[in-house]
Amino acid sequence: MISNHLLFKLASGEVFGQDQPIALKLLRSESSVQALEGVVMELQDSLYPLLREVSIGIDPYVIFEDADWALLIGAKPRGPGMERAAILDINGQIFAEQGKALNAVASRNVEVIVVGNRCNTNALICLKNAPDLPAKNFHALTRLDENRARFQLALQAGVFYDKVANMTIWGNHSTTQVPDFLNAKISGRPVKEVIKDTKWLEEDFTITVQKRGGVLIEKWGRSSAASTAVSIVDAMRSLVTPSPEGDWFSTGVYTTGNPYGIAEDLVFSMPCRSNGDGDYELVQDVATDDFLGDRIKKSEAELIAEKRCVAHLTEEKGHKVPNGKNDSCKK
């Protein structure tokens, strides 16, 4: 469902502009072949002038060949009664194999955006299995969370969402994520000067953003496919378009060398800027207070626990793997 919304946006030039031809190479499962063939027919019949090729296949070593961008969207959802360790392992094996395929055949500067949950840890697994590719090029999608946070602040302040800037999502794409109202701005002013209700910011706002995806599933009966597709487009455009002066965006990135004291060797959402060439830099000196700092540490601890669960998929070959059977994996 996410891909069905996304493909038409990519083909129309929404990401790379109206002068950049594009080839879509679609990786399918055995069960999705007929549906995907129908999507390809619709893409062909839409006569997008920039769409020069659409191909489908089941082998990632064929589909990922020379890819400049890899959007890894599919993952198995967590079913009733399924332990966290089980779903992490099942999806982790998928992303380990995709990492190996990217490492073997993709462009040496391929940009990888992992959407399938749990996306932070899946992105870590993927990059660990692609040692010949820059770890910096792997992202976990937290842009939907940022978009949700911007909307909630705009709604509370009675302004349009384009007045909200400097919005950061810290941590994991989960209910431990930390929407940062301390550094965000509304119409150029700190949020806390515009919205003076600290209790609303710390409770209602934070919890609403953290649980928005689950509430949507309860209302709609399905996950947020359309808005996820929009956020993937936003995330890609943030890397190929220069960041506005003084502003930044959120993306889950590899933590090694980060300036915020976040544990090394995780994929953690942080504030980033880009000059529009596909690369990014971490924003320096973003302030935190006790409220944000405590919650950032909780999200960090969750990701450390997830990493422990999938140690067998992330450790280098021949390296001793710590015991992954930890109580935290069962929650």
Rank of each mutant, 00 (worst) to 15 (best):
L153D: 07
T198W: 02
R189H: 09
L144P: 01
T208E: 08
G171D: 07
I169W: 03
V164G: 02
I169L: 12
T142I: 14
I207C: 02
G171E: 09
N183W: 00
Q177F: 01
D204A: 13
R148T: 15
N147L: 15
E203N: 13
K192W: 13
V178F: 04
L133E: 01
D197W: 09
N147C: 12
A157Y: 03
K192A: 11
E202R: 15
P190S: 12
H139K: 14
E193K: 04
K163G: 03
A154Y: 03
K136G: 10
A154P: 04
K199E: 06
R189T: 03
N172K: 15
R143A: 14
D145Q: 13
D162I: 03
K199I: 04
N172Y: 14
Q210G: 05
A140M: 09
A184I: 00
L141T: 09
Y161C: 02
V178E: 06
Y161R: 08
Q210M: 14
H139T: 10
P134V: 04
I207Y: 05
T175F: 03
I207W: 04
K163A: 15
Q177V: 03
T176C: 06
Q156A: 13
N147G: 15
L141G: 10
R143L: 06
K196A: 06
Q156L: 04
A154V: 06
L133Y: 02
F151L: 11
D204K: 13
F151D: 07
A149C: 13
G158K: 02
K199M: 02
N166H: 15
D180K: 03
S174L: 10
A149S: 15
S187M: 01
D145W: 07
A140D: 13
V191G: 07
P131Y: 03
P190W: 09
N166C: 15
G171A: 11
D180F: 07
I186D: 02
T208V: 07
A140W: 09
E193R: 06
L155M: 12
L182C: 00
T168M: 08
G188W: 08
Q210H: 08
A157R: 02
K192Y: 11
T206I: 05
S187A: 11
Q152H: 14
E202Q: 15
S187L: 01
E146D: 04
K211D: 05
L141Q: 14
R143P: 00
H173L: 06
A157I: 01
L182T: 00
D132T: 05
E146A: 11
S187D: 11
